[in-house]
């Protein structure tokens, strides 16, 4: 890219110094806070971990009941912990992501 000395914001952009342009002008693009309704923000989250949670618990119940997951075996106990961790891992990702979207 050709070197140039930008003198105005348009030139800053055209010279390819977009990051510099943003940094120099300290331009922020805050979008006006929206009053998002509860059902827009949280209903999908509740449905995902509610209905999805039913499938998840049903799965845990089946593997325990059938003996496929045998709590007498140490490795199986550890796997049960991993399964529960996984549920809350995604719960936290989506929950914190939602909180960040509406608050930060």
């Amino acid at each position: 890219m050709k070197a140039c000395t930008p003198t105005a914001s348009a030139e800053l952009i055209l010279c390819g110094h977009l990051a510099d342009y943003n940094r120099i002008t300290k331009r922020r693009y805050d979008v006006a806070p929206m009053d998002l309704p509860f059902d827009r923000v949280w209903l999908p989250f509740i449905y995902l971990y509610g209905v999805g949670g039913i499938f998840f618990l049903f799965g845990i119940f089946l593997v325990l009941k059938s003996g496929a997951l045998d709590l007498k075996r140490r490795t199986h106990r550890r796997w049960l912990g991993v399964l529960i961790f996984g549920y809350f891992w995604y719960f936290a990702i989506h929950g914190l992501g939602t909180l960040a979207a509406i608050n930060l």
Binding site: L48, G52, G53, F55, F56, G59, I60, L62, V63, L69, L83, G86, Y87, W89, Y90, I93, H94
Partner: peptide, 9 residues
């Protein structure tokens, strides 16, 4: 990001 629910099975 929604594939965990059937992992136990």
């Amino acid at each position: 990001m929604n594939d965990w629910f059937f992992m136990p099975l």
